[in-house]
Design a protein around this nucleic acid. Structure first.
Lengths: 207, 207
DNA sequence: GCAGTTCACATACCGACGGTATGCGAGGGT
DNA sequence: ACCCTCGCATACCGTCGGTATGTGAACTGC
């Protein structure tokens, strides 16, 4: 029941069954990678540093993420995407009518994206590291889907004039991405102004 | 009046004065870098390949761009930004009234961004390589400025309700960036739909 | 038109980094 | 109690970005 790591110099002792330990190592790598990627960017951090701060070696990293640094980043990005999507969904579902849901979801997205940690990973390095196609696929499965659904509902009930929702959703998604990027590196005073501008933009969509 | 390059094996002969030759080398490096960065991305191309295809060595590259690969990319990105800004300005100035200028400029930007070469460099790798702050500064000096001026004019003449133009410009800029990204990797049929959605979004801004 | 200087490169070399092949030893099934 | 599994550790390699130094043609002043 004890996991004894094979180490040359000293002997590191770890606890738990093998699957527990595996999961713990994986989570540690994900957490360390996320922290480092967020603070210094994908290109600015090496795998040596990631494994060092995780208390493991490169062997462990490549065992869990066969694609190496890129695979680890992908996993981190997926986590971030899920987290943001969760926040957006929670904010939206707290509201009753479709219009309020849309505005709450958009505000939540901008607020979430304003987190610098989310930012650098999701909006800056994500497309560059994985390529825009793969990044888009991840986004599609996360927050973007909520946006499309909300817009569809609003078109269905006549709040927004009939039109294809897909291109509109892309435009709004891009607008909010940019808003989040701006907020992360400006005075917090701009948050109100940006949210207000977004709110006006959304209001303008109503017939 | 002849420039004789010092080479071990064979002897490459070049023509022109020293400043002419310098400028030619610089332009060649810029052109090669732009082509390679556009097709395979910043991380996907090495300096060895750039200088090989340029017919020079690393010494030349580091002589012209002391910051190395990053500096070359920055210079390429500035070129691309200038080019896009030029296209946008030309399209806008061809129109008479401010509203038509805005719409023409936006359409031109989306069309320009749809060029995959512009795309990868300006919208994907740009922020990741140089950092968002520096990227933003370049964009600010280029196409983004035209957008802000156009919006200011429309607010001044009452076409658009009075409001701070800066955050609105950022939202629209982000929307158009995303639109361009989408267009570059989708069927050309989507261009019409996206342009239509953007047009509707802009129309919605009018009081 | 010649001597000395400049400078636009070429060459050689280095450290760092991402990736891989292999070894090991504690779980865990039988 | 045995052996196989597998989650790592260790050692090693190729590549790549960057740098220090050399070189000779283009310029400068006399």
């Amino acid at each position: 029941m004890r996991y004894h790591r094979y180490v040359k110099g000293d002997t590191v002792t770890r606890t738990g069954t093998r699957t527990e330990q595996k999961e713990r190592t994986r989570r540690t790598l994900l957490a360390t990678g996320r922290r480092l990627f967020a603070t210094r960017g994908y290109a600015g951090v090496g795998v040596a540093e990631i494994v060092r701060e995780s208390g493991v070696t490169k062997g462990a990293l490549y065992h869990h993420f066969s694609g190496g640094k890129t695979d680890l980043f992908r996993a981190v990005l997926e986590d971030v995407h899920r987290e943001v999507a969760g926040r957006v969904a929670a904010a939206a579902e707290a509201e009753g009518d479709p219009w309020a849901r849309l505005k709450a979801g958009c505000a939540a997205f901008v607020a979430a994206g304003a987190d610098p940690e989310v930012q650098r990973i999701m909006l800056i390095d994500g497309p560059a590291v994985l390529g825009w196609n793969e990044w888009r696929a991840l986004d599609e499965a996360a927050a973007f889907q909520h946006l499309t659904e909300a817009l569809s509902a609003l078109v269905a009930d006549g709040t927004i004039p009939a039109q294809p929702v897909a291109p509109l959703a892309r435009l709004l998604s891009g607008a909010m991405n940019e808003a989040a990027l701006w907020l992360a590196q400006s005075a917090p005073a701009d948050l109100a102004g940006t949210q207000a501008a977004l709110s006006r933009l959304l209001d303008a969509l109503r017939a």
